[in-house]
Write a protein that binds this DNA or RNA. Sequence first.
RNA 1: GGCCCGUUGGUCAAGAGGCUAAGACAUCGCCCUCUCACGGCGAAAACAUGGGUUCGAUUCCCGUACGGGUCACCA
Length: 556
Amino acid sequence: MDHLLLADLLFPDVHETPEDMEKRYPPRALPEGAKVTRFAPSPTGFVHFGGLFPATVGERLAHQSGGVFFLRVEDTDAKREVPGAAQALVRTLARYGVRFDEGVTADGEIGAYGPYTQSKRAQIYHVYAKSLVQKGLAYPCFTTEEEMEEHKSVNKKEELKNTNWQEAEEKRREAQEKDRAISLEEVKERLDKGDKFVLRILAGGDKEKKIRFTDLIKEQLEIPENDEDFVLLKSDGIPTYHFAHAVDDHLMGTTHVIRGEEWLPSLPKHIQLFSYLGFRLPKYLHIAQIMRLDEQGNKKKLSKRDMGANLDDYSRMGYPAESVREYVLTLLNSNFEEWHTANPDKPAEDFPFSIRKMSVSGCLFDFDKLNDVSKNVLSKMTAEHVYDLALDWARENDPPFAELLCKDKPYALSILSIGRGGKKPRKDYALLSEVKRYMAFFYDALFETEDRPDEKFARSDIAACLSDFASSYDDKADNQAWFDGVKAVAARHGFCPDVKQYKASPDDYKGHVGDVSSFIRLAVTGRLNSPDLYTVLQILGKEKALARIENYIKSL
RNA sequence: GGCCCGUUGGUCAAGAGGCUAAGACAUCGCCCUCUCACGGCGAAAACAUGGGUUCGAUUCCCGUACGGGUCACCA
């Protein structure tokens, strides 16, 4: 077979050579040790939570080393493409601290190694495809998708279990042999008829032979050589992931390929391809998958439909982006948390991210942990910051509440300031969606009596304590004086002003100051639990507080 | 089924031949001159399993079990 002739037959319009490409995309001039990484999603309009992991790793590695982090859109599967998805993705990732230097951005493409959209790179792939044919390392295959169906391994998940694997493998091998044997005449004939073909690699490997490979996360690996003539170019001339990966990452100067470990099984293909093309293999980081628990209690890869799979779910649920980012960083490098408590004022960007600290095995997504991280994040923010985030959330998800927040911003800020600042800030909510419930009783429009007093107290005693408190309440008194007042009320109505003393002889009293406080709290907030009562009364104002007490007494 | 990867408390994890096997979340208890939240103290809780190698294995090797991934003209 005359490979040069075949190449011209297959790619008559390709006149450039790989050397031309090398000239057009010269190696990057970057300092020693600078890493070039990329995030390469397919634009399906869905930003997977799992995607945040490789994206964050790539971003950290590149920026920490003074390198380049770029976005490449892998839109080689026309069937799945969603228009505008790339821009939305860039915006979403930016919220989570992942920013690109190069590639597809919100304002178009930036950078000298483009185009960064694979569908626009057809000519480039064809140059390399032609050269592979010339070297006898790739060949056309005219077997149609339908014909292939018969001896394809299988592709439906449901069928996987009932597959006769051995038979499927034999059929594949047979077909491969037949396809390889195609003659130049036959190619000419089919081409003249206008038949479409896919370009397959001529696999030179023996799967019984193992290759030693070092993954930066998984370390030493032993993988079989590739013996499968996988598809390089689909019948529409668009490359498969494998081929595009090799050509693009070579030309774009990617030094570290960061991707999910589901790619590990196709690594032999990539190694072979890079070698056929004469490209230097980049470093690989195959990162472990995030898992969830299925009904049987088994771990499963977090997939599209699962709660929390879509990154947008988190903002909808009310998690600040910062919380999610910290949680992700914690899962990626478990010492992040420790570092963060030791350096509370430094931005996450200062954290020395390390590949060595990354886990080899997949972890379970844990909402408990996320919530804890989020509580901490929110508790350390200023009231103003929380206000802004809560308002943003409310505008999207609860417009009436947004309006309430806007109506009196200083009032809202004073509520959000309770217990904020200082060494031990309150941690009342993990979610922006919980802020409303937390603030609710401060607004007459949202106020309602949720709890009931303990049955052991007589209604008349409660009413007596409350009216006594109301008539003696001085909103100018300081915290101590105010509490002394409450104690005095307690003493006047048969409640012990000192809790310890009460506990020593409970039968001598109807209750203690704490109980009296709970009556006031209930009347004023409608709940048995609230932040510091004195502060609450101060913020609420004397008039509103007394009105609520009065109403409460009436309702008893 | 073949191939590849993995397995330290419920979860995330440190430890890299000799440790009473860290820490965090969750759980439970106690304390914090009014509840809650915060904080403090404490409890319970783990090296999947069998064989090697070794004076000694959670740590190294082999097998087993279990879990995961993958086997497309999808990425």
